[in-house]
Design a protein around this nucleic acid. Structure first.
Lengths: 335, 335
DNA sequence: CTGTTAGCGCTTTCAC
DNA sequence: GTGAAAGCGCTAACAG
């Protein structure tokens, strides 16, 4: 049978409560007592019973990852980082996928919160900017952290300097000699869409390049939407020499369309994306893109969340560094 | 405050135990009583407290997904299917990634099992054939299900007719006129490697084609290993006209090498994979491959596991259908 | 700094 | 068919 806290207490010659104090890093335990307890814990291979702990402590030791059909790769990375942070802090991670429709989202959220009663939650885009979800969380009183929200005011979590990253990427294109640079935007509900578009405009302006509205088209972050947008752009009387896509999936769609049409990338058209998802390295030519450390962001968001769970009011919005990766899909404009 | 079983009992005019019986689908409750209880449950929005239930019932209502660095897409799909099955049965899913080294694997497993005390576990390849992991599970007495194990004897879970699927795919290649067909094998520790190779050999034999050992090379399921193997094959004095890879990542690596060398796919060389992972549709040309319903397999494996958890000795090894998808990467051998 | 006493909300056992 | 009482293993509140 598994040993209980009572057994540890008896073997260490202290009360259950003292053992509990040691295990929960509470103050008011003499150093010697603490050491003795820890030794017995080790000898007896004692592991606290999660259910008993939760029941008595009115906490679930669970953190929810709330998501809504984003890129699987991105989700997987964030999830991995969160898992690390959770394990390190003896927290459990519960996945909460939300349905597409608004009432469905509410029902899913509600069911998951009723069932798991998470102590906190992490939101990833585009849910970080979903009014319905945000209101639910605010009302529930459960602390939450956001990853890359459009609006980070008064929130905790992690952000990246997306605009700055895009400017850097665009400066690279401009330095290569590109003047007609197109942009395929992401889904408008997604915070990143805004930041990345802003970076595009800023770089164009700073380089003294006129912005041609015909060169900015709406995408939806999917491979297919990238193909559609690419066809549109390449059909223009004066097609762009470079296309900056708001994510890699759309950029891959562009590359595919270019290949189908017999265009060489980057000789005929340069293409770049954002995210550095696996597809960026797997297609030919490999995509120039911006790497965002999704796993690290998941880990950090979780750590900030745990701070807030442990002490209300703590936790901040931390910034992580990006990295612009120039690979094969961009080059000098051809002729 | 959240309502408790006591509140429901009081409102329905029965004992707590009767409510418990209804909620757990136990026998010995009159139909009328059951109906009344359920109505009160609905009115009071009663949701059982997981921790209390686990503590009293000596069960965690948790199922573990044990994995070890497989393809992320595959993992994600299986995970999604398991999540569905878990939600539908009010079970929790806990992710248990295992480290690379053998002692590390044991430590990870042990820690996760001590901490979460899962009621059951699902293994995915290549862990389905890992002696250390299997022994641990057997000794722990925790029921487990396997997805696509090499050896399904006496186990429960899900399998696919991998060999038959490969034969079908190979027959397609042969019908197109291919005679020199190469095979890039998967990692030898992986059960699938064996089944897929077997299908390759069987199809060659049945078509009366001589097997050239030079055309069978070892890969490791990664994109990079596919590139290496492809270079080797395409450098042969008499290169193959078609290459069947044990998974899509390696096939994508082959396509990339072919593109780099200016070879046209499929005019100069046909390439096909296995899995129908997203990359299969995202590269150009899109890959001919075999779709395995990973999400469905995750769901079914979980359902079999839950059967066994609920009644020892029940649960079986179920088979799911595959689908061979002929797309753009295969065609008649050129010249 | 340490211990005692009550529960947390549910299931189990056994009696009716 | 149904119910009463006794825990599951832990933490909270308070007393020392």
């Amino acid at each position: 049978m598994r040993s209980r806290i009572e057994d540890v207490a008896a073997a260490a010659g202290v009360s259950m409560k003292t053992v509990s104090r040691v295990l929960n890093h509470e103050p008011n335990v003499r150093e010697e007592t603490r050491r003795r307890v820890l030794q017995v814990v080790d000898e007896l291979q004692y592991r606290p019973n999660l259910s008993a702990r939760s029941l008595a402590g009115q906490r679930s030791y669970t953190v929810a990852l709330i998501y809504n059909n984003p890129s699987l790769n991105y989700l997987m990375e964030v999830q991995g980082g969160m898992l690390d942070a959770c394990r390190a802090n003896h927290y459990n991670l519960v996945l909460v996928p939300l349905g597409a429709s608004r009432p469905r989202r509410m029902a899913d959220l509600d069911a998951a919160f009723e069932h798991f009663a998470p102590d906190g939650a992490v939101l990833i885009p585009p849910l970080t900017d979903d009014a319905v979800v945000l209101e639910f969380l605010q009302e529930s009183g459960v602390p939450f952290a956001c990853i890359a929200p459009r609006q980070g005011e008064g929130r905790i979590g992690v952000t990246m300097e997306e605009t700055a990253a895009v400017v850097e990427l665009m400066e690279g294109l401009i330095a290569l000699g590109h003047r007609r640079i197109a942009h395929i935007k992401g889904a408008p509900t997604h915070g990143a869409c805004q930041w990345r578009f802003r970076g595009y405009r800023q770089a164009m302006r700073e380089a003294g390049l006129a912005e041609d509205p015909a060169l900015v088209v709406q995408g939806a972050f999917s491979f297919e939407s990238g193909m559609l947008a690419a066809r549109h752009l390449l059909d223009l009387a004066e097609p762009p020499t470079a296309i900056f896509c708001a994510n890699d999936d759309m950029a891959a769609g562009c590359v595919r369309v270019a290949s189908e049409r017999g265009l060489r990338v980057p000789a005929d058209v340069s293409i770049c994306g954002f995210d550095d998802s696996p597809i960026a390295r797997h297609i030919h030519p490999a995509l120039t893109t911006v790497r965002q450390p999704a796993a690290e962001m998941g880990r950090l968001a979780t750590l900030e969340l745990l701070k807030r769970i442990r002490m209300s009011g703590t936790g901040t919005m931390v910034r992580v560094a990006h990295e612009v990766l120039f690979r094969e899909s961009t080059g000098r404009p051809g002729r």
